[in-house]
Design a protein around this nucleic acid. Structure first.
Lengths: 348, 348
DNA sequence: CTGAAAGCGCTTACAG
DNA sequence: CTGAAAGCGCTTACAG
């Protein structure tokens, strides 16, 4: 008497279980299983339990591709970024990611490997292929501006940290207020010769900080001197120390508002090498409040940016735009804060 | 005489054009259009040009969800990370992203908001739902170890920067060699009392560096003193300065190998506050070579990690595992390098 | 070199 | 509260 071959046990096979497998195991239709998978209310409690048990038993995972294809929504947002190298962009991406996850959205990265408009454009193009419901773009003005005409249509965008035209949704730190705070702090300390070490020409944030520094000086009755131009790196700060040292020795400079913490750090290093002490001879204020700013020598007085809030706000805006494409685009300015430490004192 | 209404021009509608639209516009079948979209060779050149032109004209973008559903491949890799806060993880993610993009893969982030094993596990679970072909996990040993039993099956994983069991694919800096290099550098300078400021207990990298420091000391005929324990932050380095200063004053310490640059920075700050000079009184070596390490005061001697190469290698391994699931898992040690700057000198 | 047909796994109205 | 049927947009053998 021959033993009949065991029937193939489909639902136990090594193939990833589908909703249909779950449904079969639970003795319901795929559509009911789908309802359970999506947490819909209109399912009998006992049915739900059976389906849930089947899912657990089979190790069911929904197939996002199928879901996306059926719904037309990817539940994913894209982030275009030049690089994660700067603390600001890394922290912002971190916050974006957290906020997106809280909304059940995943985050897909698209990186523009160089700072050229084409690169950013290509990155966005890739994203458009990648299946996202919207994107947040971390980029400087010239980049974002250059790619405006070619933005992939169909999905909404939110811009962070850039000086985009006012009819576009933008989230940014209150750059102008930060620069005002920094400059006024130095002025309040009694400095009259407050110089500015600005960021690269292409940076909208750099431009805003410089303008606000100028304005603050002017309103205080001072003539703002020519600003020095760095490129955000500590190396550029070190190099600029030559000029700053000369000005300081000539008595034309007692304080510097650096466009960011890294340049401030480099500047302090360079001044030290030339025998000029911070803060005794020159006071320095930065911008960003990097995680280690309090550990610099001297501990750095700076403007704190709320990268976390920028990220959260950007996601909030983007999600609203995804839901209601016709809603008015918002511009949000995230407040900054002056953090006084040891690098600023009254002029000697 | 009434004008007949214009026929609806489907292919020009605001709806996203599908491959079928492209095919219709080009006068070919969808399958031929698909071949062109995927760059297959077996298409007549003139046919290809027609299809390409139609794609351009319609602004066609492939629907990744549909493609993934049909092929079973997402062309996307997941990255599980605790946070992008540290330069190391941000730089690694950056490199992963670049390498993945070069292979036509997108990168999806999954963030474990706390350093608990459950969090990392949940993050991986989310990724499994998110549709990735594999994941690279940036996590400390205890985390990765704790979640081993529950790793989502079906997709391969590569671990970075963690002390996983040897049968798992791991990519990591050569931590032991780095610690040896740092310690030996101090020894070669003539220091005998080389202390170690180690990372948190849970860190596999921290443990490896400590062990290698101990071994190097022992092999040089020295008895390694008790190490001090920080948590990677510059703040913890500042706090540990109290103990280090006491040891230095007692003549029991002339050099410190700090587990990372941030702790080194904080330590130097704390020592300075207590009137102990680096490098005149105490030499300090870090680990990482952060972008600003050369701008610290003094410029920091440290061990350079090649985060870019770690990321690239991790992607390489993962992609191979995706292609051939049965391939032997590899462990790769990425070389590190000693960078000598101003924070180390012979003992006074 | 080109195409007709089936199917990937899910959800969405529409019924009942 | 539950289900049958169609369809999301693409690709994959299989023919020719």
């Amino acid at each position: 008497m021959s033993v009949p071959p065991a029937p193939p046990r489909r639902s136990r096979s090594h193939h990833k279980p589908s909703l249909a497998d779950v449904a079969a195991a639970a003795g319901v239709s795929a559509i009911t299983a789908s309802r359970v998978a999506n947490g819909k209310a209109n399912v009998d409690e006992r049915t739900r339990d059976r389906v849930l048990a089947a899912m657990r038993e089979l190790g069911y995972r929904p197939n996002v591709a199928a879901r996306a294809l059926a719904t037309g929504r990817f539940r994913s947002i894209g982030v275009v970024t030049y690089s994660l190298g700067s603390h600001g962009s890394a922290a912002t991406v971190d916050a974006i990611h957290e906020a997106a996850a809280a909304q059940g959205c995943s985050v897909t990265l698209a990186r523009a490997s160089s700072a050229s408009a084409e690169e950013v454009e290509q990155a966005m193009d890739r994203l458009a292929h990648l299946g996202v419901d919207g994107t947040v773009v971390l980029a400087e003005r010239h980049l974002a501006g250059g790619l405006l005409p070619t933005l992939p249509t169909g999905v909404p965008h939110v811009f962070v940290d850039s000086g985009m035209p006012s009819d576009l949704p933008v989230v940014d730190s209150d750059q102008r207020d930060g620069a005002r705070l920094a400059t006024q702090h130095l002025l309040d300390l009694g400095h009259r010769a407050v110089h500015h070490l600005r960021g690269p020409a292409v940076s909208a944030a750099g431009a805003a900080r410089e303008e606000s520094w100028q304005q603050t000086m002017t309103e205080a009755g001072m003539v703002p001197p020519a600003s020095l131009r760095g490129d955000w790196t500590s190396r550029s700060g070190m190099e600029l120390a030559t000029d700053v040292a000369a000005l300081a020795r000539a008595g034309e400079l007692t304080a510097v508002f650096a466009g960011n913490d890294q340049m401030a750090l480099g500047l302090i290093h360079g001044l030290h090498e030339r025998g000029i002490r911070v803060p005794e001879d020159v006071s320095v204020v930065g911008f960003d409040d990097l995680p280690d700013a309090a550990a610099y020598l001297p501990a750095l007085t700076t403007i704190r940016q709320r990268f976390d809030e920028i990220g959260v706000t950007a996601v909030e805006h983007l999600l609203r735009l995804i839901e209601e494409p016709d809603v008015e685009p918002l511009r949000t300015l995230v407040p900054v804060e002056l953090v006084v430490r040891a690098s600023t004192v009254p002029p000697g």
